[in-house]
Computed example of a mutant assay.
Amino acid sequence: MSETLFLKPGLPKAARYAELHPQLNALTADEADCTANLANTAAVLRQAFGFFWVGFYIVKNEELVLGPFQGPIACTRIRKGRGVCGTSWAEARTILVPDVEAFPGHIACSSDSKSEIVVPILKNGRVVAVLDVDSDRLAEFDEADQAGLEQLMQLAGAWF
C-alpha cells in the first residue's frame, strides 16, 4: 500500500473507522517492526480524526513506557493502576472518560487534555500495550470511537 490515506469527506465516525481498518491492515501487514507499525497507526488516527494526542504506552518491566505518538510532549512512565492508562492496563478494558478532571487519579500530561479514551492491546490474553487518545474538547469520544478503536487495536496485538 502507498503511504497515503484515502478518506472520504463527511463520513460519520463509525464509517470513518470502517474506512480506516483495511487501510491500516494493508499498511502494517508486511511490516514486522512493532515500532514502525505503532508510529504509523498513531499518524493514521491523528490524520483521520484530528485528535489532540494519539500514542501508545508499552508494558515494560511492570510499568507503561511511552512509545510512538503524535502530539505534544507526554508523560514517559505510568504505573499499573494509575491514571486512565494504568487503570486500563490493570483492568484489561477500554476506558472512556468524557471529562478527565472527573476521573480519580487522572495524570495530567497536558492541561489542554479534556477527554480521553484508552484501549488495551492484548496478545495471548495479556495486555502488552495501550492506545491512548486525548482530545482538547470535553466528551469527544463515544461508543463509535470505542468500537472502532477496539477493532483497530485487534490488529496491533500481532505486532508484539
Rank of each mutant, 00 (worst) to 15 (best):
C34R: 15
G81F: 05
V65D: 05
V100F: 08
G86L: 06
A36P: 07
N124R: 15
A14V: 03
G50N: 03
K8C: 10
I107Q: 06
S88D: 01
K123L: 09
L152W: 06
A90F: 01
E19H: 05
D132Y: 05
I73Q: 11
D142Y: 07
A139R: 13
A92F: 12
V44L: 08
G10F: 09
S111K: 14
D142R: 10
A42D: 02
K13H: 08
I107P: 14
K13W: 03
T94W: 00
H106S: 10
C109F: 02
V54Q: 02
A147Y: 06
G55T: 01
V133Q: 04
D112E: 14
A156P: 13
T28E: 00
A42G: 11
F56E: 07
A18R: 13
L38C: 04
F69L: 05
T41Q: 02
N61Q: 11
L7R: 00
L7V: 04
F51L: 08
R16F: 02
A43M: 08
P104I: 06
V65F: 07
V128E: 15
E143W: 09
E63Y: 01
Q151V: 10
F56L: 07
E101H: 14
G105N: 08
V84S: 11
P98W: 08
R93F: 06
A18H: 10
W53P: 08
A26L: 14
A26R: 12
G55N: 03
P12N: 15
G125P: 01
T76H: 14
W53M: 02
F160T: 10
D33N: 15
I121G: 05
A43C: 05
F103S: 05
L27M: 14
A158P: 02
G86P: 02
